[in-house]
């Protein structure tokens, strides 16, 4: 498989619930071998998109391609290569963790040893005999992930997989996803409304805003795109006094703290000029640097509602 091939591709995908349009002309492109962070605020249409990818909802307009094949024509064959965890894990509470996996193993006709393997992968071997109703939220989420991993799929579609996990669980999940991508060559499409979850793990990002892709590309590309939002951060003694002394240069600056100012970044020359002006005005300059926006800020810029 070529590394630049697209494992998931939608073309002009649209969807609505009755008169309410949820997705508008979505052109999603998930490269093979990537961890694609699918970001967006709650209600942006992430889960609907994932359901459309899996064929759980019919696509009234546009197309979905999985592994380069039209999903509408090759759905079952494609699903054989996909493991999915959509919203809350689907668990039979009256069955043990092991039997829950056995159900899906039987559904897919997988070898008997696979159940024990995925139980070990998600760290549930010791609790496999317990009924799922006794599992904590985090254990249920891990069992849900095990269900998705069971067929050893080429593509993992995970909808908010860290829901209910404690900080340790989140770190473990992150490490597991990275191992799956780096060592096993899996492609992972991961949805979340939490940027902090995505930024440490994703190689690519798609930002959904009100059913439209506000951005799609690599993480580095997203940060480059946001360079317009970079700012010069000045550490001095008295931020207010500096603004009074240099009203033209610093009048519009943002006060970030008692001794800290932020000015929109323009150029290296601008930084030198500001340093010079502050010194001339008799103000100390302890530090002066250009701060790139974090992914979180980039996300907020992209998802803030457009001003009419």
């Amino acid at each position: 498989m070529k590394t630049n091939s697209l494992l998931v591709e939608t073309r002009a995908l649209s969807f609505g619930f009755g008169p309410r349009q949820v997705l508008h002309q979505l052109d999603l492109q998930v490269p093979a071998g990537s961890i694609y962070g699918f970001l967006g605020p709650n209600g942006a249409g992430k889960s609907t998109t994932l359901r459309l990818l899996l064929g759980l909802l019919p696509a009234p307009a546009g197309t979905v391609h999985l592994f380069g094949h039209d999903q509408a024509r090759h759905r079952l064959a494609a699903l054989g290569q996909v493991g999915a965890l959509i919203e809350m894990p689907s668990l039979y509470d009256h069955l043990s963790g092991r039997d829950n996996l056995e159900v899906t193993r039987r559904l897919r006709g997988l070898p008997a040893g696979r159940t024990a393997e995925v139980l070990a992968t998600v760290g549930l071997s010791a609790d496999a005999h317990r009924p799922a109703r006794e599992y904590s939220l985090g254990m249920r989420q891990r069992l849900g992930l095990a269900l998705a991993l069971l067929p050893d799929p080429q593509l993992l579609i995970l909808d908010e997989p860290t829901n209910g996990l404690d900080p340790n669980g989140i770190i473990e999940m992150r490490a597991l996803l990275q191992t799956l991508q780096r060592e096993h060559g899996k492609t992972i499409l991961l949805s979340s409304h939490l940027i902090s979850e995505i930024e440490r793990v994703a190689t690519h990002v798609g930002v959904l805003q009100q059913g439209r892709l506000a951005f799609q590309g690599s993480v580095a590309e997203l940060q480059r795109r946001q360079q317009g939002h970079a700012q010069v951060v000045i550490d001095t003694d008295d931020a207010a006094r500096c603004q009074l002394l240099l009203p033209v240069d610093l009048g519009g600056a943002t006060v970030l703290g008692p001794g800290r100012l932020g000015v929109p970044y323009q150029s290296a020359e601008q930084m030198a000029y500001l340093a010079q002006q502050l010194v001339l005005a008799g103000q100390p300059v302890y530090a002066l640097h250009c701060q790139q926006p974090s992914l979180e800020q980039a996300f907020l810029h992209l998802t803030e509602p457009a001003v009419a």
Partner: peptide, 18 residues
Amino acid sequence: HTENKALAWKHLYAQPLS
């Protein structure tokens, strides 16, 4: 109801089964 209670329909139809 076994499927309803487990929210399992979405999981079931995401398997390679017609």
